[in-house]
Structures are given as structure tokens and as C-alpha cells.
Design a protein around this nucleic acid. Structure first.
Length: 613
DNA sequence: GTCTAATCTCTCC
DNA sequence: GTCCGACTCATTCGG
DNA sequence: CCGAATGAGTCGGACGGAGAGATTAGAC
């Protein structure tokens, strides 16, 4: 573990990615070749997993901020105030742990822990259910660890390694360490879910053995967001599909057993029993692996927003009532393998054709084919001239014209209740695990709204020392008085200069006064962009902006804000439906000041509303 | 002792 | 999921 | 022809709301 910790330290301090890669490669080579442990393959497996920030191959260990803080207090002997203050200064609790550990007598002369110790402890943690048991396992581990080891173990456990090297760099490092072609490593990485296993295959020169098999998940192919079409896009080569507001999933049928894999590649079959049952029953005697989206459907098979689906997510054994209340359909849009044949290298057009045959044969409402249209058709389906042009070989369309017509197609998709559009290249293979240029998701500029800053929190990590996460509000007229109503939060979209400026203004007024201060800077007005509204439990007004970001800051401009509440309410009504408003408000109860976020660390509410407790 | 509320962690988007 | 900035690598530009 | 400037592409790391499930703390 000490070797790995040193390598991670070196990785963290070097700026260039190539340097990081070399540091990791050296460590992997050393650990994989002649580990201090008898089991060098096992050590390599653990080392590589830790380097990518993963604790175990699959099971979560159920240790987070709170428990880790307890351990740090116990291990270093400092009280929670010191630990918190130190974390705030470092911007990272694990970093603080390392520093405080150095001052523990004899800690730097400890022999340290082995990688197999670490692996064993993590396994025990994953199995342990009670907090007390977890605590015991953690104490045992950290009591033997050196300060450097403790720091990196804590980083991994807290999920923020921040060395500037994750999967991509680690894959390069594996290739370098064991002199394997990078392409081979990358290819295998999309098929082997555990990076540790990948490293062992590379070390033994067995990368070629990695192949897709039905029943084992493949990394999902992702789409690159675009605002408008690129100049080079030739419409005839592309197909359009609606972009669904659901959960990405893979549906495998192998040996009569249907398995559903979620985005993180873990099994969620029990969560969606109706889909699995349909696959098993209707697909009897066949094998396949379909890529698609789990979508909540309502009356008349209308798609429902993600919020509805969320009530099904994470349910280990949904009750009949839940299944009935939130029916789900698997919308199939790609075929990765069928009847033993792997299709990843096939062009999309061929995969789609086979998929259509399959869904046709399955013929059930739980598994449906996602409609797809040639881009030329989708651009202007109502224009008969264009339909004629289809029969012509590669009709030419001006880029601006394509972009303009894409707007119409986009609006049509929204009209069908979907999130937007995805463009896919007909001749592209399935690029597992990559966010390539073969799939493009079309996004639109967000609507904007002027709001007022009412609170800010201290940032952590790279944002340590500045205020971030601004809570904002709009004005509401109440008789003669005007009140501010919280509507949401934003945390990015500011340049450094703007953050500094904002920090100065806010710091001067609010820092040192937190703890219930209801101070507001109404003259600081932000223009916030957002892509929709959601009902919110956290905000008193009962809704929140979804994915807000700050577009622009202005000051001393409050007079024009009077209509903002009306604007929000109108948008809210159109997004969520007027009927939900009361429900949202009734259910909503301010959580009050928690002092810390889930991640804990150093975030504090600095200024708050009078309305909130 | 039992029931309920709060807290914590994880993981979808 | 969104967004931003840093880094790499390839291409173009200018002396 | 070669080095500097530029641009595209990739990657990592800042973060959000929300719900479920497990455990623990608290109320009666």
C-alpha cells in the first residue's frame, strides 16, 4: 500500500497527464511483478482499483463522510472542531487526515498496511451492516496505516481521489506498465468491468481473451452534446431518435435468465421485474443483449417525466401497488448481441434492423422498439418536396437549413413528451464506453430568469476558500411588502474573476455572521439559466430549478424583478402541471439549517431566509 | 418495548 | 446529469 | 523547414436534486 500511496502522491503533484501516467505505470509494474505479498496478481488488482477511486469490484462499503469523520477524530485525537477547521483549510477531509496523522506520535514509523489487508477490510466493510462493526474494521485498518496511506485510503473511501488520473490515465498506465498496445487495453476495458482484472489480463498478455458475452454487461456508448449541427454533418448518413428522460439500461437474456443492468453496470433485475419477466417469457430459447432506456409510462402510453420513474429506482422488491402505480417500459434502441452473435462491430443500420426483428418477435408492451427516422425525413416530415428528395442520392442541404429544420424536429420531440433528440450515424459501430462523435444529443439553450442571491456556501476541493453554491430567490409582492422566495441553487457557470468578485462582496457582508443570519444582498442579481422546474422538497416554495447555472451577474437592479414569481409559477405550471402545486407545497417542509451537506466537509449556509427555521 | 423520525449512504438523472 | 478548465495532439501559420 | 500559435478533442473534477433503504436515535 505504501508503494501505491507514494505513486498516487507523485501522480497528484505532477501536472501533465503523461507524468501521471508514468508514475502509475511504474507502480503497477512493480506491484504486479514482485509484490511483497505472495499474491502479486491480487495486489495488482487492488492497487489498480484504488487508483481509479474504486473501493471494491462491486459492493459498496457503506462508509461515508460521517463515519470517516468519527474515525479521524479517534485516530488523531483531535476534536471535531479542529478536524473540521483543518478540512476547511485543506478543502478535503482526507488531506486533513494525512496532516493530522503526521503529528500522531510514531505514526510515521508504522510498518503500514498491505494491499491485501486493504482488500480484506473493504470486503468486511461491505458485509458489515451495523455502524459499530464498520467502525471496528476501520479502526483496525487505520491504526496500522502510515499517514500517507491513511490519506489515500480516506480519499478512496470518501470518493474524491483528486489525483487528476481516473480511468483514462489508468488505462494508459496499464498499457505502459506491461508493454501492451493501448488500443488493446482500451478495447478490453469496455468489456471487463473491473479495472483490476483488466490490469491482470494485461500483465499476463491475455487481453485478447476479453470478449463480450451475453449475460455480462458492456460499458454504455454515450452521446456528445451539441447545440447545433456541425458543418460537416451530411444528413443522409444520420438517423434521428427521441431522447428519453429515463434510466439507461441493458437487457440481457441468457440461458433463459433475463438480467437488467443499470448505468453503473450493476444488476437491477429485481427492480424491474415486469421487464425481466417479459424478456424471459417472450424470448424463450433465444439469447440477446439490448441497449435502451427504462421509461415510466402513463395513460395512453404517454411518457412520464424522470420524477415519476424515480419512485421505482432503488426498490429491491417493488410491491404490486408500486408496479401498478408506476408502470415501466424498456425502450430498445440498440442491439449488442443476438443468439450468440456479437454485433458491436456491426454498423448501426444493421444492428437496428436486427433489433427491429427481435422486438417484433418479442411482441410485448414491456419491451418496445424506439422509433427512429432517417434525418432527412425527420427534418421536415410535412414537406412533400423533401419526401421526394429522399429517393435522390444524397440530396444536399445547406447547414443553416438543416439547423433550422432541426429546431422543428426538436420541438416535435418535446411535444411527444421526450427530452430532445439524439442523432446517430448509420455506419458507426457500437463504441462501448466512449462518448464519441457517432451519437449526438441535441440540446437547446436554456430559458433564463433573473434572481437574487440570498445565501452562499463555502466551497471545497478546488473551490476551497471561496464561496460557491449560491442559493437564489425571486421577489414576490405581498401587499405593500415584497418578500423573497427561494427557488433554487447554482454553483457553476461563473468565471474565476466573477467568483472572486462575488466572494468579496458577500464575504464583506455575511462571513462571520452565519448561524441564522437572514442577511441578503438583494442588489446582487444573477441571470440564471435552467432547463426546467421540478417539485422540490428542499425549498419552501415547493419547486426548484433543474440544473441551474449562473449566466451573468448584475448589481443594483431589483426594480424589474416584480414579475419573476409569476414567471416561475407559469413555467412551473407548464412543466409539472398545475395540479401538483398544492401537493408540492403541502409535502414541502424546509429541512432547516444542517450546517453541512451530505459530503459534509466545510459547507455552511451563510445567509438564510427569515421564513426558514 | 414499540413505533417513528432523523441520519447516512448510494446512485440515478 | 451540467459545466468548466487543463492538457494533448494535430494542424496551420509565419519567419 | 522548423518552431510558435491555434483549435479540436479528451479527460478530470468541481458540483446540483431527489428517492430508497438501512441503521440509529428519540418519543411515547
Amino acid at each position: 500500500m505504501i508503494r501505491l500511496s507514494r505513486a498516487l502522491e507523485r501522480t497528484k503533484s505532477s501536472r501533465g497527464r503523461l507524468d501521471k501516467e508514468r508514475a502509475l505505470a511504474d507502480a503497477f509494474a512493480l506491484i504486479g511483478r514482485d509484490s511483497l505479498d505472495e499474491d502479486s496478481a491480487g495486489s495488482l488488482r487492488v492497487a489498480v482499483r484504488l487508483a481509479t477511486g474504486a473501493v471494491t469490484a462491486s459492493a459498496p462499503i457503506g462508509v461515508g463522510f460521517s463515519l470517516m469523520q468519527e474515525v479521524i477524530i479517534a485516530e488523531t485525537g483531535w476534536d471535531s472542531e479542529v478536524v473540521r477547521a483543518c478540512s476547511r483549510t485543506c478543502g478535503d477531509m482526507a488531506e486533513a487526515f494525512g496532516l493530522l496523522m503526521q503529528r500522531v506520535r510514531g505514526a510515521d514509523r508504522r510498518s503500514g498496511v498491505s494491499l491485501s489487508d486493504v482488500a480484506r477490510t473493504f470486503e468486511l466493510l461491505a458485509q458489515a451492516s451495523s455502524r459499530a462493526h464498520k467502525r471496528r474494521h476501520l479502526d483496525e485498518l487505520f491504526h496500522r496505516a502510515t499517514p500517507l496511506e491513511a490519506k489515500y485510503l480516506a480519499k478512496v473511501i470518501l470518493g474524491s481521489l483528486r489525483t487528476g488520473a481516473l480511468e483514462g490515465v489508468v488505462e494508459n498506465a496499464i498499457a505502459r506498465a506491461f508493454a501492451q498496445p493501448l488500443e488493446e487495453v482500451r478495447r478490453a476495458a469496455t468489456l471487463v468491468t473491473d479495472p483490476g482484472e483488466l490490469a491482470v489480463l494485461a500483465r499476463d498478455g491475455r487481453l485478447a481473451e476479453a470478449s463480450m458475452s451475453i449475460g455480462a454487461p458492456v460499458a454504455f456508448m454515450l452521446a456528445t452534446p451539441i447545440e447545433t449541427v456541425a458543418t460537416t454533418l451530411s444528413p443522409a448518413q444520420w438517423t434521428v431518435e427521441d431522447k428519453y428522460d429515463g434510466v439507461r439500461a441493458q437487457l440481457h437474456l441468457h440461458d433463459g435468465e433475463a438480467i437488467v443492468f443499470a448505468r453503473g453496470l450493476e444488476r437491477v433485475t429485481e427492480t424491474f421485474p415486469e421487464v425481466a419477466r417479459a424478456a424471459a417469457e417472450r424470448g424463450r430459447g433465444r439469447t440477446f443483449a439490448i441497449d435502451g432506456e427504462l421509461l415510466a409510462v402513463g395513460e395512453g402510453d404517454k411518457p412520464r417525466p424522470f420524477m415519476a420513474l424515480q419512485q421505482r429506482l432503488g426498490r429491491k422488491a417493488p410491491t404490486a401497488a408500486t408496479l401498478a402505480a408506476t408502470p415501466v417500459a424498456f425502450i430498445a434502441y440498440d442491439l449488442l448481441a443476438i443468439d450468440g452473435k456479437i454485433l458491436l462491430e456491426f454498423p448501426l443500420a444493421d444492428r437496428r434492423a436486427l433489433l427491429a426483428e427481435l422486438t417484433d418477435a418479442l411482441d410485448c408492451p414491456e419491451i418496445r422498439l424506439s422509433p427512429s427516422t432517417p434525418l432527412l425525413d425527420a427534418l421536415d416530415p410535412l414537406d412533400p418536396l423533401e419526401t421526394d428528395a429522399l429517393s435522390e442520392p444524397t440530396p444536399e442541404l445547406d447547414v443553416a437549413e438543416v439547423a433550422r429544420r432541426l429546431d422543428g424536429a426538436f420541438a416535435a420531440a418535446r411535444g411527444r413528451g421526450h427530452e430532445g433528440l439524439v442523432l446517430k450515424r448509420n455506419d458507426a459501430p457500437y463504441e462501448a464506453g466512449r462518448r464519441g462523435q457517432s451519437w449526438l444529443k441535441v440540446k437547446r439553450a436554456f430559458a433564463t430568469l433573473d434572481v437574487v442571491i440570498t445565501a452562499a456556501e463555502e466551497g471545497h476541493g478546488r473551490r476551497a476558500g471561496v464561496l460557491s453554491d449560491y442559493t437564489f430567490a425571486v421577489w414576490r409582492d405581498e401587499g405593500d411588502a415584497r418578500a423573497l422566495v427561494n427557488v433554487g441553487k447554482a454553483y457553476s457557470g461563473l468565471t474565476d474573476v466573477e467568483i472572486d468578485d462575488m466572494t468579496r462582496r458577500l464575504t464583506a457582508l455575511t462571513l462571520g455572521r452565519y448561524g441564522g443570519a437572514r442577511l441578503v444582498r438583494p442588489e446582487i442579481v444573477l441571470e440564471v439559466a435552467f432547463d426546467g422546474l421540478q417539485r422540490s422538497k428542499r425549498h419552501k416554495s415547493g419547486f426548484a430549478l433543474r440544473f441551474p447555472r449562473i449566466v451573468r451577474i448584475r448589481t443594483d437592479k431589483t426594480a424589474e424583478q416584480a414579475d419573476d414569481v409569476a414567471t416561475v409559477e407559469k413555467l412551473f405550471a407548464s412543466q409539472v402541471g398545475a395540479g401538483h402545486r398544492e401537493e408540492g407545497e403541502a409535502k414541502t417542509r424546509g429541512r432547516g439549517r444542517r450546517g453541512m451537506t451530505e459530503k459534509g466537509e466545510t459547507t455552511r449556509q451563510l445567509g438564510l431566509f427569515g421564513e426558514e427555521k
